[in-house]
Computed example of a mutant assay.
Amino acid sequence: MNTRSQQFHVWQRLAVLIWLFNGPAILAADPTPPGWSLTWNDEFDGKTIDPKKWDFDLGNGFYNYDANQWIHGWGNNELQYYTSDSRNAFLKNGQLHIRVLKESLHNCGYTSARMKTRTRDGRPLFNQTYGRFEFRAKLPTGQGIWPALWMLPQDEKYGPWAASGEIDVLEARGQEPNKILGTIHYGSRWPANAHSGGEYTFPDGGTIADFHTYAVEWEPGEIRWFVDDHQYATKKSWWSSSKTENGQGAKPKTAADLNPWPAPFNQPFYLVMNVAIGGNFLGNPDASTTFPAEMIVDYVRVYEKTDGYEPPPPREKSSLPF
């Protein structure tokens, strides 16, 4: 266990002692992780989803203006249609529920929700460069169910995906409930994109169907992944290039083709939460998959490092794509 983890668990034990003398109301206020200060959060204590914090992606795809074509299935051949309907996303007992229903809508066989903090009515909601991004959630299981807690760039400064990056705090294949993945996507725009990260297997029969705290700590030149404050992966190398050939992303050939380190992870990112169904990553549901399928989020919290951030260390030569 690292020093920061030890400090956090000391705070947890102290909170329990406080609860013994003062009751559960005080325990509900979780301690701030040492070395971090809270900058944004949603505890989902209201009656409805806060429109000042969240907006929704809608539909089953997007228009790719570079290719001048509609990309169905969000580029992954996914089967769900995202809505803002209160049957697919709602608050109950101080928690957010994202619910997947097996129903037909606009030629899709399922409805779900994909929430984001990018903009609403043209105004930014929330984004941040660097920090600790923390979600406490229990996730749905079953063949073809794909829950994810992740981040995307507020502005695609370095070009379309994945040149401007993606940070996956967590994603899971519902048919593998004892395992999660933390991933970063980077490189050039598709198809010259790259990704790396790590995976975590829950010990002692634990699964994603239980509540766990998933977090990423993102600093200049380093990204770390945690489950229940256990650090299971670290990345210190990646690259970004805006180079194109014939209208598509191209692999850089020299250092001059690279964007300045630590691009693309030196720009503001916003939050995304969703449950997708089927597609290339995990396959489609089958007769064993149970619906409705539901992701429940207890809270989302974002922190800044109290003492600020050090400049990034030099780029590791092993991260170069040539």
Rank of each mutant, 00 (worst) to 15 (best):
H195P: 05
S196Y: 04
S196P: 05
G198D: 00
E199R: 06
F202C: 09
P203D: 11
G205C: 08
G206H: 02
T207P: 00
T207E: 01
I208M: 01
I208F: 03
D210W: 10
F211W: 03
F211D: 01
F211K: 05
H212T: 12
H212Y: 07
Y214G: 05
Y214N: 05
Y214R: 08
A215T: 11
A215K: 08
V216Y: 04
W218V: 04
W218T: 00
E222N: 13
E222Q: 13
I223W: 04
I223N: 07
F226D: 00
F226E: 00
V227E: 02
D228E: 06
D228K: 01
D229A: 14
D229G: 10
H230C: 11
H230A: 14
Q231L: 14
Y232N: 12
A233T: 11
A233D: 08
T234S: 10
K235D: 12
S237Q: 09
S237N: 12
S237C: 13
W238A: 00
S240P: 03
S241R: 00
E245H: 13
E245F: 14
N246E: 09
N246D: 08
G249F: 09
G249Q: 04
A250W: 09
A250M: 11
K251T: 13
P252A: 06
P252V: 09
P252S: 04
K253Y: 12
K253N: 15
T254E: 08
T254L: 11
D257Q: 04
D257H: 07
L258I: 13
L258G: 04
W261V: 12
W261P: 06
P262W: 02
F265Y: 04
F265T: 00
Q267I: 14
P268I: 07
